[in-house]
Design a binder for these strands. Sequence first.
DNA 1: TTATATGCAAAGACTTTGCCGTTCA
DNA 2: TGAACGGCAAAGTCTTTGCATATAA
Lengths: 142, 142
Amino acid sequence: MPTIDGERVLRGAGRRLTRQRQIVLEILGRSRVHLDAEAIHRRAKRRDPRLSLSTVYRTLNLLKELGLVEERCFERTHHHFELKTLSEHFHFTCLGCGKVSEFQNPKVEGVLRNLAMDERFKLEKICICLSGYCADCRGKGS
Amino acid sequence: MPTIDGERVLRGAGRRLTRQRQIVLEILGRSRVHLDAEAIHRRAKRRDPRLSLSTVYRTLNLLKELGLVEERCFERTHHHFELKTLSEHFHFTCLGCGKVSEFQNPKVEGVLRNLAMDERFKLEKICICLSGYCADCRGKGS
DNA sequence: TTATATGCAAAGACTTTGCCGTTCA
DNA sequence: TGAACGGCAAAGTCTTTGCATATAA
């Protein structure tokens, strides 16, 4: 899925593209799973040992503000971040192995948009999170 | 929407129905909006000034464990709780006034269940959160 | 050059836990 | 009566903030 061009948005908003921000953006862009702030920090430190956790938080907040990043909340105390893609997508979290898969479905989106229209809601965001057991885990009974 | 009978589930699990738990259950049952732990505590104290915040947290965790209560996460640092209803329902949060409305839609649910089946996922939970502006707020441009 | 950004450490917000007296069944 | 529970305060976890220094543009 294509992601938004972080550098351009950042510059467009008159913000600086620092080395730290580049690192965080790249980590988010490369990761196939969703990362929490600490996981991002752990990876970022491999590329710059001095990069601090507060910079990670500040960067994530900035990216959220600019609409580059989405915060997901699967559990009580762990929030995960991902780069926004250009089209809406949804999540399936496996309760067995923790893997997160993404999916898209225009039909679901359409039904929800109609529903909102009926209620005269102006829809800004749709978030669908499914959880359960993936094909690999459903046998294991965990 | 009918809610599960808290007292029976609690007793069935061999847990005690204490006055504090009654109070929390009643608050959750009566509230038309979703409450966070502190809001629940504030209300609970009106009925028992000695009821502590940690009891609220412990009770919410217990009720969650028993499947009586659902934890919702709308913002980064505010989790909201609600009594589970017997059938699945979804949420629309107004970004203008903060009001949360609930809705149901078997069609959406059906599509998602089929989707999961195609992937051989065993679906345990569906969570759909819409956000945007309600009919009242959409004009105000806030 | 200078408005922004970072690192560090300290503070904040929310939640959990240990201990001990209390209470439900 | 005894296991479960609640109150309180202290500790834990995650996140934000103040301040001095560094840096992108």
